[in-house]
Design a protein around this nucleic acid. Sequence first.
DNA 1: CCCATATGAGACATTGATGTCTCATTCGCT
DNA 2: AGCGAATGAGACATCAATGTCTCATATGGG
Lengths: 183, 183
Amino acid sequence: MPVDRDHVLRSAAALLTRKSTATMDEVARAAGISRATLHRHFAGRDALVRALESLGIAECEAALDAARVDEGPAADAVRRMVVAIEPAAALLAFLYTENQLFEGEEQNAGWTRIDDRISALFRRGQESGAFRIDLTPAWLTEALYGLLASGAWAVMEGRVARKDFTFMITELLLGGALRREES
Amino acid sequence: MPVDRDHVLRSAAALLTRKSTATMDEVARAAGISRATLHRHFAGRDALVRALESLGIAECEAALDAARVDEGPAADAVRRMVVAIEPAAALLAFLYTENQLFEGEEQNAGWTRIDDRISALFRRGQESGAFRIDLTPAWLTEALYGLLASGAWAVMEGRVARKDFTFMITELLLGGALRREES
DNA sequence: CCCATATGAGACATTGATGTCTCATTCGCT
DNA sequence: AGCGAATGAGACATCAATGTCTCATATGGG
């Protein structure tokens, strides 16, 4: 009978990713609980979003850990990273746009940590000679977020097959649209 | 004394891109007019967003025209396209996320036209042998939107210099992060 | 089996945004 | 200067979402 906090968060994430303006009532119904109960666990909409942010950060850091982004060739590390992040992509897409709202406040330190780790990966790739140096690590990081968000939405709306998600993102991010010269 | 409708729309676009939940009152103040006047020109928030959508579509189609995306090598056409769309990127970023809300309703036919034209460009690049064929035109189009949005936000928050905007997007989209083999 | 605890349903006041209206003022134009 | 049209300021009702509360009910452990 006690509410499954994790289940509530995941339902909320799924709903809010589709409809970021969903009501507390809709969120509650999506999780299969009453609005009163939702309120008992999350003081308000803000607290809910913060909890989702924490979840997103935790999943992202777990994904970076699981992908062992510090090890092996940088390109392979990027591929592992995208694969590991994929399950959290929709949540990240929601938080990515939601973050635009918190313009005044300082952003959660977790994002800074994640940005730094991803940037470090791209920098490592540059220093090893695998990645070009005229695209800054900061931009590559930003672009990764953008592609994850686009990919998540495209999958949600059926414009891209879910099974192609990681392939499309890693291939575009690493290789781009131009055909490689056959060597 | 008559209100400059275009100026109002552009102010609204600039504000809403930064803070998508801005109030009608904030939008009015940002444009330097009163809420009453704003209301006289746009029946409501919905009408305002629709007007912004029309503006975005118009600018996008004008950009595609100006870039002559049907002419010349596809890669060059993509570069011209990004350059031409750049001024509208922030507005597009706003509309791109806002579109997620209109889940029920059918999307404006203008977007379909634009999607088709951009997809056709990518397809043309594939057929000419310039672009790889394992990334679908639909995905490349979607990725372009995502990169434009990421780029616009990154510029707004000072993480990327405005002058690098088009370079970063076109280079990543076309070439990817991997270093090309020297041939 | 019974009790403590958590939940569901719903009432309620509050808040913030919205849309409408009025009226005085200002601006442009003749 | 004078007229008409558009604006600004603000009042007002409305509406939706929120947050709080109560009470009946169900669940699960002892």
